[in-house]
Computed example of a mutant assay.
Amino acid sequence: MELKKALALENFAQTVYRKCDCCKRVRDIYFRLNIRDAKTASMLVGSLELCKECGYNMGDITNTQIQTERTLEEFSFE
């Protein structure tokens, strides 16, 4: 079983201000870690909502490329 499939780290479209499930501090929540069944990776077992720092740490653990900066539109100056 691949770790990225069992522990899927996803970005929220907009941050939410609440308690991080990992460090228990009240902060902007950027990520949700979806925890799937270890044998099949098809059934959702649970999830954790993570702040920026905890999300980056979890991304390092699962070798997932994550970013919190988004580009809404790209402009061409031609």
Rank of each mutant, 00 (worst) to 15 (best):
M1L: 07
C54E: 02
M58R: 04
Y56I: 13
Y17C: 01
K52I: 13
A13G: 10
R27A: 09
E78D: 13
M43S: 12
D21V: 02
E2G: 07
L7W: 07
D60R: 10
E73F: 11
A6I: 13
T68R: 03
Y17K: 05
I66P: 07
F12T: 02
N63K: 06
N11R: 15
L3T: 09
L72D: 05
N63M: 04
Y56S: 11
E69V: 14
C22R: 15
K24Y: 15
Q14E: 15
E74S: 04
D28T: 00
L7Q: 11
G46E: 04
L48G: 05
L48A: 09
C54N: 05
K4E: 11
L44N: 02
K5E: 13
L50M: 06
I66T: 08
D28N: 05
C51G: 01
C20S: 03
Q14L: 12
L72Q: 09
E74N: 09
C23P: 03
K5Y: 08
A38L: 12
L9D: 04
N57P: 07
I35N: 08
R18G: 10
I35W: 03
T62D: 01
Y56E: 12
N34I: 01
I29N: 00
N34L: 02
K5W: 05
L33S: 01
Q65R: 13
E69L: 13
E10I: 07
R18N: 13
F31S: 03
R36G: 00
L9Y: 01
D21C: 01
M58P: 02
L72C: 08
R70I: 13
F12G: 06
S42V: 10
T64M: 03
R27Y: 07
I66W: 03
M58K: 04
M58L: 09
L9M: 00
R36Y: 07
S47Y: 02
Y56L: 13
R36H: 09
K24T: 15
K24G: 11
N63Q: 10
D60A: 13
S42W: 07
E74T: 10
L44S: 06
L50F: 02
D28Q: 00
K4V: 00
R25I: 12
L50G: 00
M43G: 03
E69F: 12
T40R: 00
R27V: 06
R32M: 03
Q65C: 09
Q67T: 14
F12V: 02
L72F: 12
Q67C: 15
Y30H: 03
F75Q: 06
Q67H: 15
N11D: 13
M43T: 14
L50E: 01
K4C: 07
F75D: 05
L3V: 11
E74L: 10
D37G: 02
A6L: 12
E49Y: 04
C20F: 02
T15K: 10
T62E: 01
E49G: 00
R25P: 04
A6M: 10
I35A: 06
T15H: 06
M1I: 09
F31H: 02
V26N: 11
C51H: 00
G59K: 02
M43Y: 08
Q67F: 12
S47D: 09
Q67A: 15
E49T: 06
C54P: 08
C20L: 00
I61A: 11
E2T: 06
F75S: 06
L7V: 05
L44E: 08
G46A: 04
Q14D: 15
T62M: 04
K4Q: 11
N57S: 14
V16D: 01
Q65P: 09
E53G: 13
I35Q: 08
F12L: 11
C23V: 00
S76L: 10
